[in-house]
Amino acid sequence: MKHQSIIRYNLIAFIIVLIFPGCSKENDSIAPFIKDGEIIYATRVDSIQSFAGNNRIKLALTLPPNRTATKAIISWNDNKQVKEVPINSTDKVAEVVLENMPESSYLFKIYTADNAGNKSIALLTSGVSYGEIYQNSLSNRIVASTDLDRLNSKLTINWSGSAQGEINTMVSYTNKSGTASNITVLPTESQTVLNEVKAGSTVYVQSKYLPERKAIDAFTVLKKDEILIDLRPGNYIAVGTRANYNADGSLASSVAIAIDKQLDRTTTPGIVTTNDIANLGNFADSKMTLTFKEDNTIEVSGYISTTAPIVNHPTLPKSTYDPITGKLFLRYKYTNADGAYRLIEEVLSPKP
């Protein structure tokens, strides 16, 4: 029995010798790292989202429910720029908008810190800032075609397909009463109808874009496209009188006017021409020019048979245009080579 006990004790001693030297070497390997005490990390954020903007970027930091962190520290440009964000104990998400970010892509390093100065392991995320380069790449939605209903003062706009990132297109116009109106056109819409548009006014088209689906800023195209609403060119029914005077000023006769006329568009907005003068018919060597003014008066000029001048009526008020009805009230005079002259009063109504 005694011999067995000695063997047992020697075996135990041998095992102890094997164990303790190993433990000593293991402790020696980590000693330098814990000589100042245990390393404590602050709780890091759960996730990060970035949102593009106009020379700025928004970061949303999702926070864990049980946390020690009291602030988040964001750095970029090789840690040359740093932003600290306070974290409240009740916040589920901490948000920050980084302003004055030149148009570019960025890589952010984010870690948290607690009141004791302990920091979390850093997380990385990327973000994009848009600016002048993106702005200058944008254009307004393309107008495929327009259909102008002169009789009802109605403009139909047919659109081409919308571009990537387009969120809407604003169409601005003036109605018959002179009131400014706006219509917002969505990318899914292919046609827009403007009712009671004012003749001689301009329709403006301006589109708006988001550079990314969740971007915090929209970009509006800097220059508006224009559509001139010129209801005045077209076909009319003319009714009135032509008074024929001799060179001495005596009235020779009076003739009724009842004739269809066509007013032709020119390259200059607000100016139309016609070869149908009074009730003389259409002559290639004759032309009357109607210049529409902002106050809806009309300046009449031109010539008959190349040399006979056409001018405003010498005694009656100037010719006028009614933008509500689309009618023209013309009063003018032309003089023949022998001195005889004609005074004309006629009303031109848009032909259905």
Score class of each variant (00 low, 15 high):
Ile87Cys: 14
Ile87Lys: 02
Asn88Glu: 13
Asn88Gly: 05
Ser89Arg: 10
Ser89Phe: 13
Thr90Cys: 03
Asp91Ala: 07
Asp91His: 03
Lys92Asn: 07
Lys92Pro: 00
Lys92Glu: 02
Lys92Cys: 00
Val93Phe: 14
Ala94Tyr: 05
Ala94Trp: 02
Ala94Ser: 12
Ala94Ile: 04
Glu95Cys: 00
Glu95Trp: 11
Glu95Ala: 02
Glu95Pro: 03
Glu95Met: 03
Val96Gln: 05
Leu98Thr: 01
Leu98Asn: 02
Leu98Asp: 01
Glu99Lys: 02
Glu99Leu: 12
Glu99Phe: 14
Glu99Pro: 00
Asn100Gly: 01
Asn100Gln: 04
Met101Asp: 03
Met101Cys: 05
Met101Val: 05
Pro102Trp: 09
Pro102Leu: 01
Pro102Ser: 06
Pro102Asp: 06
Pro102Lys: 04
Glu103Gly: 04
Glu103Ile: 10
Ser104Lys: 15
Ser105Phe: 02
Tyr106Pro: 12
Tyr106Phe: 08
Tyr106Glu: 03
Tyr106His: 10
Phe108Tyr: 02
Phe108Leu: 01
Phe108Asp: 08
Lys109Met: 10
Ile110Asp: 02
Tyr111Ser: 02
Ala113Gly: 05
Ala113Val: 14
Ala113Ser: 15
Asp114Ser: 04
Asp114Thr: 12
Ala116Tyr: 07
Ala116Ile: 05
Asn118Gly: 06
Lys119Thr: 15
Lys119Asp: 08
Ser120His: 01
Ser120Cys: 08
Ile121Asp: 07
Ala122Asp: 15
Ala122Ser: 15
Ala122Tyr: 15
Leu123Phe: 05
Leu123Asp: 04
Leu124Phe: 08
Leu124Asp: 11
Thr125Tyr: 00
Thr125Gly: 01
Thr125Asp: 05
Ser126Ala: 12
Ser126Cys: 00
Ser126Ile: 08
Ser126Pro: 06
Ser126His: 12
Gly127Tyr: 06
Gly127Ala: 09
Gly127Leu: 14
Gly127Met: 12
Gly127Val: 10
Ser129Met: 10
Ser129Phe: 11
Ser129Pro: 10
Tyr130Ser: 06
Gly131Trp: 14
Gly131Asn: 15
Gly131Ile: 15
Gly131Lys: 15
Glu132His: 11
Glu132Pro: 00
Glu132Met: 06
Ile133Thr: 11
Ile133Leu: 07
Tyr134Met: 08
Tyr134Gln: 11
Asn136Asp: 14
Ser137Leu: 11
Ser137Ala: 04
Ser137Gly: 09
Ser137Ile: 04
Leu138Asp: 04
Leu138Thr: 04
Leu138Phe: 01
Ser139Met: 08
Asn140Leu: 12
Asn140Val: 13
Arg141Cys: 09
Arg141Ser: 09
Ile142Leu: 12
Ile142Thr: 04
Val143Trp: 10
Ala144Leu: 14
Ala144Met: 10
Ser145Gly: 01
Ser145Ala: 13
Thr146Lys: 12
Thr146Phe: 10
Asp147Ala: 11
Leu148Met: 09
Leu148Ala: 09
Asp149Glu: 07
Arg150Ser: 04
Arg150Phe: 09
Arg150Tyr: 09
Leu151Tyr: 13
Leu151Thr: 13
Asn152Arg: 15
Lys154Tyr: 15
Lys154His: 09
Lys154Pro: 06
Leu155Ala: 05
Thr156Lys: 13
Thr156Pro: 04
Thr156Ile: 15
